[in-house]
Design a protein around this nucleic acid. Structure first.
Lengths: 120, 120
DNA sequence: CAGTATCCCGTACGATACTG
DNA sequence: CAGTATCGTACGGGATACTG
């Protein structure tokens, strides 16, 4: 009897997290909200290299995913404040592990890549 | 004095991990090697929906990053065995946290998305 | 200030065919 | 069995200009 595939994108649920946090700027946006409420403009200033389009797009996705809160204060000029939801805060330990792994092991990755690349 | 950007892709090191594991099939390939050595063909059978091209490409990247070992046994027909390196194994706790978070919170994400989508 | 609206490009991914 | 090689496409992301 033939063995059926037992690893699928659906069942093995890594991708469900990765589709949330693996976009280029998402982790940085979450990081910017870690200490509490922050305005759009201040995020833009704090996140090096991000464009308005990408910041807006990233925040929209986070809002849609229930990770970030958007609070528009109608004034002229307008004020928009972003913060993490409880769901968003539940991501923080995960993000910290990602960072720790990178700090501990990324040099090994770089070394492995260099060795691999010269050997071809 | 103007505050400089204090969050950058370089310094905040999330992306260093994500660039390794955030490809579509990478996590599943790592998962397939979790229990030890596995042949190319068996991985192909176990990972639902993966093509030869994507499996080969994924494994090559993992080998280059120092995450997977490739052992070619020259016979006819050839046998190729893949396994995790120590560096690869150091990723497993991380992957498990990803999975746990997904199991615990992905329903909330789905709900948030549904609500967001109907409200526009 | 906090966004939209366009245009454009590289590349991740997929389908298919071929090979030592 | 374990790969290459080639072609095609969708989409993430960037540059730039405009707006309530």
């Amino acid at each position: 009897m033939r063995k059926l595939p037992d690893i699928s994108l659906e069942l093995c649920r890594y991708s469900h997290v990765l589709e949330i946090i693996s976009n280029k700027w998402t982790a940085l946006a979450i990081y910017a909200m870690e200490d509490g409420t922050i305005r759009y403009g201040e995020m833009k200033r704090r996140i090096e290299g991000i464009s308005q389009k990408m910041l807006t797009q990233t925040l929209k996705q986070l809002e849609r995913d229930g990770v970030a809160n958007r609070k528009l204060i109608p004034s002229v000029p307008p004020i928009t404040e972003y913060s993490l939801t409880p769901l968003g805060e539940s991501l923080l330990p995960l993000m910290n592990m990602l960072k720790l792994w990178a700090v501990d092991h990324y040099d090994d990755v770089k070394k492995a890549r260099d060795e691999y690349d010269v050997s071809r």
